[in-house]
């Protein structure tokens, strides 16, 4: 089977059968696996098996996912699959918490301080930053198919 150069290089660097050597840490590899499985579930339920061009994700800052590693793992792991060539578009969301005592939102400093900077109440109510969400998929289908569908 002929592979695109990018894909071939990626396979050369990291085969999904071998431990990741560089760039992509292991948990992003597993996260990507979970992502592909979820998208595949959607895709298999489509009667036309469309060609997916973009996968749009929202990834919160307060998750265990590093977007750059995810991009790399996605490129590698989608080789030779129904997602080959699809672009991963990642929208990051900031960590925002709500302090009930102060009745206001604040931005915890990840790695430094999570409690409310004004009253020191613990971070209990996270309003944003925990997202790990597949927002939407962009896909293409040939015009004939669309007409055929109508």
């Amino acid at each position: 089977m002929l592979l695109g150069r990018k894909c071939r290089d990626a396979i050369y660097r990291v085969s999904t059968e071998l431990p990741p050597i560089s760039h992509s840490s292991m948990h992003e590899t597993d996260m990507t696996k979970a992502l592909i499985i979820t998208v595949r579930d959607w895709w298999e339920n489509q009667p036309e098996k469309p060609k997916i061009s973009h996968v749009h994700l929202t990834v919160g800052q307060f998750t265990c996912v590093e977007p750059a590693s995810l991009q790399f793992a996605f490129e590698v792991q989608t080789c030779n699959t129904f997602l080959e060539g699809a672009k991963l578009v990642i929208q990051e969301t900031q960590l925002i918490a709500f302090c009930h005592r102060c009745q206001q939102e604040y931005r915890p400093e990840i790695g430094i301080q999570y409690a409310c900077p004004d009253c020191n109440s613990p971070m209990e109510d996270i309003r944003s930053g925990r997202e790990l969400k597949i927002d939407r998929l962009e896909y293409e289908t040939s015009e004939e198919r669309v007409i055929g569908n109508r």
Binding site: A34, T38, D41, L132, D135, R136, S142
Partner: peptide
Amino acid sequence: MHQTFDAALGINLLHANQ
């Protein structure tokens, strides 16, 4: 000729695991 479509999923990345 191709047309582009959008499918809103809004599902958790770890949906299958969950």
